[in-house]
């Protein structure tokens, strides 16, 4: 099996479980990265690509009786289309879940046009 490794850290990476939703103002990306502290997340936007990298603490030499959690970093790239405003992307982290708000460009938002008297 071809397991992915990060080009800089050389550490194994897995694709985090995610949810992508959209409402009338923004696309909301929710990414589950258990064990990743806020300071260990790297989010980058370059041209049309949004890259998310979250580093976890590597396992130390402890003796494991059960080991199911993956000893890997999280890595995922997304392609942004032209409706996303590159300047208005916000992110915050809560309980190991990263929430990224990608605001839509004003031009693509639905507009209600009032009729002048």
């Amino acid at each position: 099996m071809a397991t992915a490794t990060h080009e800089k850290t050389g550490r194994r990476t897995v694709r985090p479980a995610s949810m992508i939703r959209q409402d009338k103002d923004a696309v909301i990306l929710q990414v589950e990265m258990p064990g990743v502290a806020k300071d260990h997340i790297d989010i980058q936007v370059e041209d049309d690509t949004l890259t998310i990298h979250g580093s976890t603490v590597p396992g130390n030499g402890d003796e494991y009786l059960v080991r199911e959690r993956r000893d890997a970093d999280f890595y995922q790239t997304y392609t942004l289309d032209e409706t996303i405003d590159r300047e208005r992307i916000d992110a915050h982290m809560e309980d190991g879940v990263l929430m990224v708000q990608l605001q839509l460009k004003e031009a693509v938002k639905p507009r209600k046009i009032a009729i002048a008297d």
């Binding site: 589950e32 258990p34 402890d62 003796e63 059960v66 080991r67 959690r69 309980d95």
Partner: peptide
Amino acid sequence: VDVRETNDEYIVDVDLPG
């Protein structure tokens, strides 16, 4: 889950994002 054992204790880590 991960279960680790040291001399004095067991340490259980559970992935519960969100």
